[in-house]
């Protein structure tokens, strides 16, 4: 990881010194184990706090929306796909960006790891694919591959799809990954069981909107749940309103979601928010052979019409 960090710092310093960019967006070390904080650097001094490890799960494309500066941005595979989506949707110009691509072997699931231990984790370090977790009365080494965020474990685009600089050699992409087992399980259920599954999933939602706000796709100036004239959705803890929020948000991400997992990572209540978006991601793949954010040349299926588009659902 140290080579990655050094390379990120080296490229960032060069970009700032040559005045190619006004700021660099990256990560700095957080105040808790398994947490890094997105940050920006405008001078070489700020760059010194940049880090890279398996705790950079927040999607940095989220920090580009409508910015006017020239920006250097550190981007792993999923970030780069959301940068592509941002460019396609005119949320940022390609010319404004210098993308510092980071080949990624996945981010670790801090909730899963915390739940593995009864007492608090005070230190987490990583070395060569091993994660060492220390706390009061325990010291355990885990295989990184076994504690990956779920979306990382099934990721097939670990290398940035668009970049100007690359901090390391590309990593091998995962092959023959079954990406949709969880969606198929839900598809096989009866309507009642489906309903119940999502009811259970949302039982603890507090509607803090961390999932929405962590999502690079959710940049609407006014989200439909915040619209007051007219008001579409109630604001209480009513389960129908909560469900309306989650499903409509998912629909709104159809054909755009890169399954970066930022929503799940952000949720303070540990809700698997991806359960909503993934069905649409699967449908887009199966019906349109589409994976979001792979190319700035191609328009997404939901804003194009092709005579061959599937229409079996119209009777």
């Amino acid at each position: 990881m140290l080579e990655y960090i050094n390379k990120i710092k080296e490229i960032s310093t060069k970009l700032l010194e040559e005045k190619k960019v006004d700021m660099i967006v990256g990560f700095r070390k957080g105040s808790l184990p398994m947490m890094n904080e997105p940050c920006f650097a405008k001078n070489t001094e700020d760059i010194q706090s940049f880090v890279w490890d398996s705790n950079c799960g927040i999607n940095l494309a989220n920090y580009l929306t409508n910015r006017k500066e020239k920006i250097g941005i550190v981007a792993k595979g999923c970030d780069s796909r959301n940068i592509v989506t941002h460019i396609i949707e005119n949320k940022i110009n390609r010319d404004q960006l210098t993308i510092i691509g980071v080949p990624c072997k996945g981010m670790i699931d801090r909730k899963m790891i915390s739940d593995m231990f009864d007492s608090e984790i005070t230190e987490v370090t990583e070395n060569n694919g091993k994660i060492t977790v220390k706390g009061n009365g325990f010291d355990k080494t885990l295989e990184k591959t076994e504690v990956l965020q779920e979306n990382c474990a099934i990721c097939i685009h670990r290398n940035p799809v668009i970049y100007d600089e690359l901090v390391a050699k590309e990593v091998e992409e995962q092959k023959d990954v079954d990406r949709y087992e969880d969606v198929r399980n839900i598809e096989a259920m009866s309507p009642e069981d489906k309903w119940k599954t999502f009811d259970d999933l949302l039982k603890t939602c507090i509607r803090c909107y961390a999932c929405r706000n962590a999502c690079p796709l959710c940049y609407c100036p006014t989200c439909f749940v915040d619209e007051a004239k007219p008001q579409w959705v109630g604001k209480s803890q009513d389960p129908t309103d909560t469900r309306t929020f989650h499903f409509l948000r998912a629909f709104h991400c159809a054909g755009r979601c890169t399954d970066c997992g930022a929503c799940v990572r952000a949720c303070p209540m540990g809700i698997n928010v991806r359960a909503f978006t993934k069905k649409l991601e699967k449908d887009c793949f199966e019906l349109f052979n589409w994976e979001a954010g792979l190319s700035i040349e191609e328009r997404p299926p939901l804003d194009t019409f092709k005579p061959g588009d599937p229409d079996e659902f119209i009777k």
Partner: peptide
């Protein structure tokens, strides 16, 4: 997918 019976919505 979210549990509304399939026949309730038709196009």
């Amino acid at each position: 997918h979210m549990g509304v019976e399939p026949d309730r919505i038709q196009f």
